[in-house]
Design a protein around this nucleic acid. Structure first.
Lengths: 234, 234
DNA sequence: GTCTATAACGAGATAGAC
DNA sequence: GTCTATCTCGTTATAGAC
């Protein structure tokens, strides 16, 4: 893509470094003032650049936001996948819990990035389709766990009500054609509930209420695992 | 408290009207730009007042935010309580579902106020203790339902792990001394999970994913009801 | 006593001329 | 790229109307 072969990576690497510096500074501002106050000018000022120079890296504030969002989803997804890969046992409930706990740990370590992807929408910003792939990583991982459990031994779940049968079949066809619709539907609900638990802790709703948060979370996600059919009496 | 008795309410009423107008305009700005951009000056300008006049009603911007937060919690709590009071049947699962659906409806009708109380924290703002009472209304209502179910017939729940026994007893002592610790603990988890479901829908996480949202939500909160011991095979 | 208006502060953002 | 003039912000002090 570049003219010479030997020095080809030099410019590209410089560009990557500046891009990374811009995103790092933007993340700092995210932590300081929230996504609503993210300003290209302030990022440029802090980096000793002039604002117009930033537009060579990000065409607009929204594009910078999109890059931060994709990075956050990918960082969370990578953390969850790494935790999953590090599990010794094959037992689905344990793997489910390890992934959930990885999500929680990542969120507690990156509260502002968590707020960016699972908190209030940023006013005036609408996420483009390019964020979908990264956003789906955790959900895909959870579905894989349920699938493995299903192939090992049958999953016992209440059938879906008629009002949800079409929805369940659509979801199953899209994400896990080899799973029963009730399992995929329960998975989507459990996915939302998992982030309810995580969000309440990260956003302070458990302050003065829940003290033993690790144990509380572990107990709750174990019940969640039962809800998606990963039954094994603990 | 005032000097004369007949005209006592006149000034007080005028004050209440101005206070309400300020909060209404503030809510409008909340919808437009998010809590981070709420500005006392802009509120005053839109109301034809001068900014310093607002300080007679709210000592600071944070106090205005606090008032909006308490109003939002109270509005949600009142909607949930009204729905609960309107339920004909005594069956706990139905009452649980009606309350959950009232929460969902309120959130969909007031997305910006929902974001204010259950979304990302407002940068630089820390909620004072005066918000706690209003914030607890929905949780209290759900606990009342579980308590009634428990008094009717025994609740069958898995016992808490040892790591949570102290926590469970503390929670039970604080919120429902007549309930087993496992039930109260499961209630707190279900409460967080309920807002996970609601938040995902309000904040757009279900876009392009879940279509039949009412049916999906109803199915999920019915499972939640089972999780807190309101068992009745549907 | 209760309210509103004027003016000002220090800090930060913004727009445009150069 | 740089500089400057002009905005907005939260907040306070002060003075006067009712």
């Amino acid at each position: 893509m570049s003219s010479t072969s030997a020095t080809k990576g030099a410019r590209a690497r410089a560009r990557e470094e500046v891009t990374a510096a811009i995103k790092d500074e933007a993340r700092r501002q995210l932590a300081a003032g929230g996504a609503a106050k993210l300003s290209l000018r302030a990022v440029a000022r802090e980096l000793g650049m002039v604002s117009s120079a930033l537009y060579r890296y990000f065409p607009s504030r929204d594009d910078l936001l999109t890059a931060l969002i994709i990075d956050a989803y990918d960082s969370l997804g990578a953390a969850a996948e790494a935790a999953h890969a590090g599990v010794a046992t094959e037992e689905p409930v344990r793997r489910w819990m390890v992934v959930c706990e990885a999500v929680r740990s990542w969120a507690l370590e990156h509260p502002h990035e968590y707020a960016l992807i699972y908190g209030s929408p940023v006013p005036g910003y609408s996420a483009p389709d390019s964020t979908i792939r990264a956003a789906a990583r955790v959900g895909q991982l959870l579905i894989d766990i349920v699938r493995d459990a299903h192939q090992g031994r049958g999953i016992a779940l209440q059938p879906l009500p008629e009002t949800l049968s079409a929805e369940g079949e659509r979801l199953a066809a899209e994400f896990a054609p080899d799973l029963p619709p009730a399992a995929v539907t329960a998975m989507v609900a459990a996915w939302a509930q998992l982030f309810g638990l995580v969000g309440f802790e990260v956003f302070g709703q458990f302050n003065r209420l829940v003290e033993e948060r690790s144990a509380f979370f572990a107990h709750a996600v174990r019940q969640l695992a039962h809800g998606v059919g990963l039954l094994r009496q603990s």
